[in-house]
Design a protein around this nucleic acid. Structure first.
Ligand SMILES: [Mn+2]
Ligand SMILES: [Mn+2]
Ligand SMILES: [Zn+2]
Ligand SMILES: [Zn+2]
Lengths: 152, 152
DNA sequence: TTTTCAATTGCAAATCATTTGCAACAAAAG
DNA sequence: CTTTTGTTGCAAATGATTTGCAATTGAAAA
């Protein structure tokens, strides 16, 4: 499943809008950062740091810089970090204004990913928080299964 | 939060019962394996491989052996693997006959863990599976927040 | 109980993902 | 243009987990 088969309910943002967002948070718009944003923009899928790195125009920029940039973008709320079945973190752009709360359905055979907008009620989360006296409770939820192409 | 503050709704299994279960799956009951089971039995919490290793009677057995054993126990369905906020896998014993399906509420400050027995995603899971044509869909769900002791 | 043999272990080296120190560099402000 | 300060490349360091291999040992067979 190399092709992008999932639905994009979000509008793809323009690069200038992205760099503006970044400017508001961090300080400088550098070559590597713009390149990373452009790559994320063109791949509305969770991408590993290494995948982002290899999409980079002719080995431009160091892997360490990509790692540093992902932390920066994450702190700025511009990307969201995910962990699936393997050890590598994956990143996706978060739309401006969005809380970036959604989940994924991942094929354990081909790694195909579908975005899942549904979520169980926030009430349950509050109930669990209250019952245990926890505050600022959030959750991570991911689904795993076998996609249509990989069945049989 | 070093103490064990959460409720144990499950009965702690006896070691002979555990080794019997293991015997049914794998081949040999060795010193390291029995020790690991005993440690898991006495700590009804998610434990990292390194934590299990350091609980081991006077440095008995190699770290690599613990890693190999955790894979073995996992394949035998005797332990469940969890991933929280940091990079280390954590393990807990799964009761005989249990599908081992439950979740956790983790304190992001002190790493304290509370087991969450409720599961709300079952219906959503079916709906999502059907909508996307996926089969054998499962999910991972964990809650994160700040525990009573770590607030303020 | 002894033999036998595949499963298991210890040890050290190898991987993998990610981080970090530091000197050279380059955006953005003045 | 100059200054200031955040950024980057590079290489080495980390931390978790895996793996090759020879030595060891459960447990089934004799
Ligand atoms: Mn949710
Ligand atoms: Mn559940
Ligand atoms: Zn698939
Ligand atoms: Zn806490």
């Amino acid at each position: 499943m190399k092709t992008c088969s999932h639905q994009h309910t979000h509008k793809r943002q323009e690069l200038p809008a992205l760099t503006d967002r970044l400017r508001r948070h961090a300080r400088k718009i550098t070559g590597p950062r713009a390149a990373i944003l452009e790559i994320l923009r063109q791949h509305p899928h969770p991408l590993t740091t290494k995948e982002i790195f290899s999409e980079m125009p002719r080995g431009e920029c160091d892997l360490a810089t990509v790692y540093r940039s992902m932390h920066l973008l994450e702190k700025a709320g511009m990307v969201k970090r995910f962990h699936f079945y393997d050890g590598a973190a994956r990143f996706e752009l978060v739309e401006e204004g969005s809380d970036g709360h959604y989940h994924h359905l991942v094929c354990i055979r081909c790694s195909g990913v579908v975005k899942v907008e549904e979520c169980f009620s926030a009430e349950i989360e509050k109930k669990i928080a209250a019952k245990n006296g926890f505050k600022a409770v959030t959750h991570k939820l991911e689904f795993f299964g076998v996609c249509p192409n990989c069945q049989g």
